[in-house]
Design a protein around this nucleic acid. Structure first.
Lengths: 154, 154
DNA sequence: TTGGTTGCAAACACTTTGCAGCTGA
DNA sequence: TCAGCTGCAAAGTGTTTGCAACCAA
């Protein structure tokens, strides 16, 4: 998918936030379980956004016994830890943003169905326009804009 | 309300597109029923956007016997006629835009729960920014931006 | 008459919840 | 041990569909 290029090189400082997740879970008196490990394995392979349904399916690939309720409960937990955030996609389904280290919105192409990231640099124009014109302060992470991407014009 | 007066010099032109709806429905060999009349009465009192659930409730106020399935089916029909358009609101529910005579997006305030219209004049900045920077052509009618309105800043 | 419509109820897809038993620390 | 976790099944949303009866044209 023609996703936004991830930072090559300069990257994140220190260990992956997912590694810290184990400790942070334990630190809260919570337990590190096989089910949580499975979900986090799935999550750390992905960047961007996924639907809960997709996560459940991917977990089931690794562990046939995966249960939806456990996945949802674990996602709630991870959201409390700030490792994922949820919103709603263009079709109204729960959609999880993985590792939102950088707040971003989404662009959905009705032509090819691809979802693109709307980087803060680009989104800034929107944020500023609405702030100055209407006094409205945008939460970019909840923005999804539909339209047609460069490759899908009529 | 914004333009909409398509004053034709000859004969059949209703003052409101809703009046034309009756004829357009009949013209398609379809039937004009009490249930459809009820829904359209409800719709013509509203501007902007409503959830299907809200429409069902309002119809039931007028006609206790209103059924969800009929409302959904009628909304489908009205969408075919171009009288409403549906999208998804900030919470992922079906949301209908009534009489989208003027294409517009939405602003949702997470503070007070109000939904505001994003007028094309204001939205133009967004459209232009994404077009020039990414070659993405925005469909403003599917844009919903969350944030805080001027009266709800922390 | 007759095909579009309706109401009902059941099906749906996705998500949440209650609870008894299991398990990580 | 024992609070937290899991699986299951059942409940809940909101939306869609199958079908026999119904009714607008």
């Amino acid at each position: 998918m023609p996703h936004a290029e991830m930072n090559a090189g300069a990257g994140v400082t220190g260990p992956s936030p997912w590694d810290q997740a184990v400790d942070r879970i334990r630190a809260g008196g919570l337990r590190w379980t096989p089910q949580r490990r499975t979900l986090i394995e799935v999550l750390r392979e992905r960047e961007g956004h996924v639907t809960a349904t997709e996560l459940i399916a991917r977990c089931r690939e690794r562990d046939q016994t995966t249960t939806p309720s456990t996945v949802y409960r674990t996602l709630d937990l991870l959201e409390d830890l700030g490792l994922v955030r949820h919103g709603h996609g263009h079709d109204g389904r729960e959609e999880y943003h993985i590792l939102p280290q950088e707040v971003h919105g989404h662009l959905y192409c009705v032509g090819c169905g691809t979802t693109w990231e709307l980087r803060p640099e680009t989104g800034a124009v929107i944020v500023e326009a609405l702030a100055s014109q209407l006094g409205f302060s945008v939460d970019l992470s909840h923005v999804t804009i539909s339209g047609r991407c460069a490759g899908c014009h009529d």
